[in-house]
Design a protein around this nucleic acid. Sequence first.
DNA 1: TAACTTCTACACCGATCGGTGTAACAAACC
DNA 2: GGTTTGTTACACCGATCGGTGTAGAAGTTA
Lengths: 208, 208
Amino acid sequence: MTERRKSAGLPDKRRAIVAGALTLFARDGYTRAGLDAIAAEAGVSNRTIYNHFSDKAELFQTVMQESTQRVADTMVDIIDRHLSKVADLETDLVDFGLAWLAVLTSDLAPHFALIRQINAEMEHIPPAALALWRETGPGRTRRELAERLRRIAQRGDLAIDDPVRAAGHLMLLISADNLTDRADLHDEDALRAMVTAGVRTFLYGYKR
Amino acid sequence: MTERRKSAGLPDKRRAIVAGALTLFARDGYTRAGLDAIAAEAGVSNRTIYNHFSDKAELFQTVMQESTQRVADTMVDIIDRHLSKVADLETDLVDFGLAWLAVLTSDLAPHFALIRQINAEMEHIPPAALALWRETGPGRTRRELAERLRRIAQRGDLAIDDPVRAAGHLMLLISADNLTDRADLHDEDALRAMVTAGVRTFLYGYKR
DNA sequence: TAACTTCTACACCGATCGGTGTAACAAACC
DNA sequence: GGTTTGTTACACCGATCGGTGTAGAAGTTA
């Protein structure tokens, strides 16, 4: 009574396949991740995968799209939750940054390993799929953050002439240590220090 | 009369192999890059590769080390050339940033594709090799930049209490657009605008 | 019960890949 | 001239992988 199954596959099997594929694609990359291993991870027969997806490339694209959607939703939610009403700007930005970084170690962590895979195999991915990912993933998140910064600046606290660029700066500064060498994402104190330093650089840099 | 060949292989063949391997590892990644293709790219027999390297993993490690060394040398040289004697801080930092970014599109470009591969396959690379890379590559470069910033700050222009973190911030801000979405690295004007914006954010953020 | 859909297990194919063995050839060294 | 060393071409092995064919089991719908 739920949904008329159109042509192939039960929806829960499909979800299991996509979830298992995300795990293995994230860990091993597109080439290394074998379909037999994905089938085993999903608790599903090898043959069943081809009942839901025409080939490995289509499976990968589906995994990429669904994971991107979910993470972008989470990120936008964090932005809205922390930056809709701003009391003390530095405090709120630091809290926002910590929530932002927490996603990297959450159950959404595999997504970011997947992004590193995409980044590496960029030249082997169809440009259209790449553009779609940029638009629905980092692009959307960045625009959302930019819009929030624009409103905050309008309130008179910051001087931002290019909100999108400023959003990029903030995102980078928040996770600076994490990007350059490897920060310990589980040391709460070091994490807060990193975020605070980044936020302060951002704030002083864009102070009116 | 040059050098006593110790055990195996002529040095020029070896160099050709490493160069060809860099090209293919950078483009296709460790798994996708086949040894036959590498041999063809190097203009060398498949069998000859095994005369110089015991297996694919050792070849990859050699490629990684040599490329890292060369790029780090280049980066340190750029730092020294632009930030030894500072006249106008913003101008000099922008010029430095542009020279820094120019490396990304130089003949050293494959190295950065290789780094993306490393970043993706991190969980499949021996931790010792990873640590060595961080130390001789980005670590060295970052420390060198940090030292320069420390001296500049000492001169009284900036307030930097953690030079290494500041160096990280500067490196990220310089290439901000390039890291978040894809900036056109060949549009000279857009490039200068990106670097200038990053440098200004850095300078205002660390202004004494 | 009968018709239909989906899943599973298994065998299988062709291609690729990392790596080896071998024998012939070229060049440097004694 | 003879020996040694390195290179090459080629055939080959075992393993893995993407993908298919098939037959039957399991569950759903009428």
